[in-house]
Amino acid sequence: MKSVAIRESATDRLFMSIIYLFLAFILIIILFPLLHILSASFSSPSAVSSGKVWLWPVEFSWIGYQAAFQNKDIWIGFGNSLFYTMAGTVLNVSFTVMIAYPLARRSFYGRNIIMLLLVVTMFFDGGLIPNYLLVKSLGLLDTRWAMILPGAFAVFQVIIARTFFQSTIPDDLAEAAQIDGCSDLAFIWRVVLPLSKPVLAVLALMYAVGHWNTYFNALIYLSDYTKFPLQIFLRNLLILNADNSDMYVNISAQAVQQGLKDLLQYSLIVIASVPVLVIYPFVQKHFVKGVMIGSLKG
């Protein structure tokens, strides 16, 4: 049997052309600043300070990265951010699953009331001063735990995980596991988690990006610079325009005069963005699947 091709009308072709042009325009708007930052980070200080860089490196140079990696604060911040991101993400995902899965089961008594109380916290917050006093009273001030525990889980992520569990893990499956002698913890570990890779990827990526980009909690709760995340040092350079002589070790005075400080801004932005860009391709498949399942069945 021959397949019959549906011929599009002129109006449909015009409409699709407009859509493609609009999407291409949005893509250009997004890509231009990214390419400009990447090109500037590999250009010479003089080319960056004079505004010669557009979409391709001018006078290719590693000076910006060389100066950045020679600064010990960058390594301290990078290591701290990795720790906060990894430890915080594991803790966040674990807490979210432990809260969301019981709320998704119909047999859990009072789940609607608990869910309502959780949703209320999304609209009403105690504020900065009460949160600071709470962290201080718990003895977490100026500790690494202050960057992880106050945001142990997010209600929005709990809603996403709860919706996924409700639509993907039927109650009949849990009842069948109980008949076979499987405990609740064993059922979660052996059945729920393997079937929940898409939503786990969504949660992990959301939490990881949040931890990697955070700096406000560090400004409030931390005073020891050895515990500062990378974003604090990046903020000091970009916003406060702080000078640090360690960045200019082994760099000629002529290069400094040509605008090394401007070049460092672009180099540090690339350094701070690389970890997230490296992680995303590995979770992209599960991330897209998890988002679509939540949108179609939620």
Score class of each variant (00 low, 15 high):
236 N>L: 09
212 W>T: 02
64 G>L: 08
30 I>P: 09
234 L>R: 02
235 R>C: 06
187 F>E: 03
189 W>T: 12
247 M>L: 14
224 D>F: 00
146 A>S: 05
89 T>K: 01
74 I>L: 01
95 F>W: 10
168 T>F: 02
233 F>R: 07
161 A>G: 04
123 F>G: 06
18 I>R: 09
145 W>K: 10
264 L>S: 11
149 L>H: 00
16 M>S: 15
250 N>D: 14
203 L>P: 06
44 S>H: 12
215 Y>N: 07
193 L>Y: 01
186 A>C: 10
97 V>E: 05
192 V>H: 06
102 P>Q: 04
98 M>G: 06
21 L>E: 13
291 V>T: 04
186 A>D: 11
282 F>K: 09
80 N>G: 07
13 R>T: 08
96 T>S: 04
22 F>W: 12
40 A>S: 15
79 G>Q: 13
222 L>W: 03
220 I>E: 11
192 V>P: 03
289 K>W: 04
124 F>G: 10
83 F>Q: 11
25 F>D: 14
172 D>I: 03
66 Q>F: 15
59 E>R: 08
65 Y>C: 03
290 G>A: 00
250 N>L: 13
127 G>F: 09
3 S>C: 13
34 L>K: 07
136 K>I: 14
1 M>F: 11
245 S>D: 14
165 F>P: 07
94 S>M: 15
174 A>Y: 02
214 T>M: 14
265 Q>C: 12
126 G>V: 11
137 S>P: 01
14 L>D: 13
249 V>C: 00
279 I>L: 13
119 V>G: 05
28 I>V: 14
115 M>Y: 07
206 M>T: 11
272 A>I: 01
217 N>C: 08
162 R>N: 14
5 A>S: 13
38 L>A: 15
248 Y>L: 11
220 I>N: 09
172 D>Q: 08
289 K>H: 04
173 L>H: 06
228 F>T: 07
272 A>M: 03
120 V>M: 08
176 A>Q: 13
262 D>R: 13
196 S>Q: 05
134 L>H: 06
82 L>M: 11
6 I>L: 10
252 S>D: 14
212 W>P: 05
104 A>H: 00
31 L>H: 03
164 F>C: 06
12 D>R: 14
208 A>T: 03
37 I>K: 07
157 Q>Y: 12
114 I>N: 00
74 I>P: 02
232 I>R: 00
266 Y>D: 12
107 S>D: 05
261 K>L: 15
171 D>Q: 13
117 L>W: 04
106 R>N: 13
180 D>L: 00
84 Y>H: 03
187 F>N: 06
127 G>M: 08
133 L>D: 08
243 D>I: 15
151 G>T: 02
31 L>Y: 04
2 K>S: 11
91 L>F: 08
180 D>Q: 02
199 V>N: 01
172 D>F: 01
97 V>I: 14
213 N>A: 12
139 G>V: 08
140 L>A: 03
216 F>E: 14
231 Q>D: 05
167 S>I: 05
24 A>G: 11
139 G>Y: 04
257 Q>V: 13
189 W>I: 13
32 F>K: 09
222 L>E: 01
175 E>D: 13
167 S>E: 06
279 I>C: 07
239 I>M: 12
234 L>V: 01
141 L>H: 05
215 Y>L: 08
7 R>M: 13
267 S>K: 02
50 S>T: 12
229 P>S: 03
44 S>R: 10
175 E>C: 09
66 Q>G: 15
29 I>Q: 10
87 A>W: 02
65 Y>R: 01
230 L>I: 06
289 K>E: 10
168 T>P: 05
127 G>Y: 09
